[in-house]
């Protein structure tokens, strides 16, 4: 028995090591490139021969107006945050109605949301490009926030419905018997209990908006609203003869580290959110 346990531990240790290796190699690799001095970026070594922060410095060089990175970073953060706030607000209303109220059209909304989750974004890019230019939304924040809302709402609704359903009905009834109005019951009992779900949905929506590339390169034309993924694709080197590899790696690390920290702290919630309502047989 003793022996068996030791062997089990050995097998699991190897399995876990493999998983960690699989997950972390690209991140470590980017970190390694970003820390190489620009002259050694192309040396192909997995571990830098010497360390330097030059790649990071070049990112922020020229300050707000000339740096190729600062404005896109601000755009990314603001656009993702605004999308998150609006999406979560709208999705909370809808999810509450779906989880708690009886009305015709409920199944239609859920089915429609699901259909949208599977919708190919590229199919809307052309018409949006044309419409946005006509409406003056091309290359603006709202021009990106609106499509992000559309495509993140289904996810947010599904996650929130799953969480709202978890809250026992009788708590709301108990609050009513305790003398609460329906709104008080919602605000003092349902909302605090749904907070973890709301937070989870918010993380997922944020990651979605943060990750988008298709809309960002199609519906923007300048740093006015271009987000980091699209900006990375347009990075240029110091001169037209040098590849921007080092700066891309540094920029990638800057936008990745916060996400990793986030994931570290909230992995339980993210897992719950990603799997909520997805599998019910």
């Amino acid at each position: 028995m003793e022996r068996r346990d030791t062997r089990d531990y050995a097998v699991w240790s190897i399995a876990i090591a493999l998983v960690l290796l699989f997950a972390l190699i690209p991140v470590v690799w980017l970190l390694s490139i970003s820390l190489k001095p620009p002259s050694e970026v192309t040396d192909g070594r997995f571990i830098p021969a010497s360390f330097s922060l030059d790649n990071y410095k070049s990112l922020f060089e020229g300050g707000f107006s000339n740096s190729p990175f600062i404005k896109p970073l601000i755009n990314s953060i603001l656009i993702a945050l605004i999308t998150t706030v609006i999406a979560i607000t709208l999705a909370s209303f809808t999810a509450y109605a779906i989880a708690r109220l009886e009305f015709p059209g409920k199944r239609l909304i859920l089915a429609g949301a699901l259909a949208i989750a599977m919708f190919p974004p590229i199919s809307t890019v052309g018409p949006l490009f044309d419409m946005w230019r006509a409406l003056g939304l091309y290359d603006t924040y709202p021009g990106l926030i609106i499509p992000y809302l559309t495509f993140s709402l289904p996810l947010a609704i599904y996650v929130l419905v799953a969480f709202f359903r978890e809250i026992p009905w009788d708590l709301e009834e108990a609050a009513q018997v305790d003398g609460a109005t329906p709104f008080q019951a919602f605000r003092k009992v349902i909302l605090p209990l749904a907070a973890p779900g709301v937070f989870t949905a918010a993380i997922l929506v944020f990651i979605f908006a943060w990750n988008d590339f298709v809309f960002s390169i199609s519906l923007t034309s300048s740093d006015a609203s271009r987000t980091v993924p699209a900006a990375l694709a347009f990075f240029t080197g110091e001169s037209s003869f040098t590849e921007p590899t080092g700066s891309i790696a540094a920029a990638a690390i800057v936008v990745t580290i916060p996400i990793i920290v986030f994931v570290l702290f909230f992995q339980r919630r993210i897992v719950a959110g990603l799997t909520a309502g997805a599998v019910k047989g």
């Binding site: 026992p168 009788d170 708590l171 009834e173 108990a174 609050a175 018997v177 305790d178 009992v189 605090p192 209990l193």
Partner: peptide
């Protein structure tokens, strides 16, 4: 005042 089968205590 009502006592529910599952008590319906506010968990928070």
């Amino acid at each position: 005042a009502m006592v529910f089968q599952n008590y319906a205590l506010y968990p928070h």
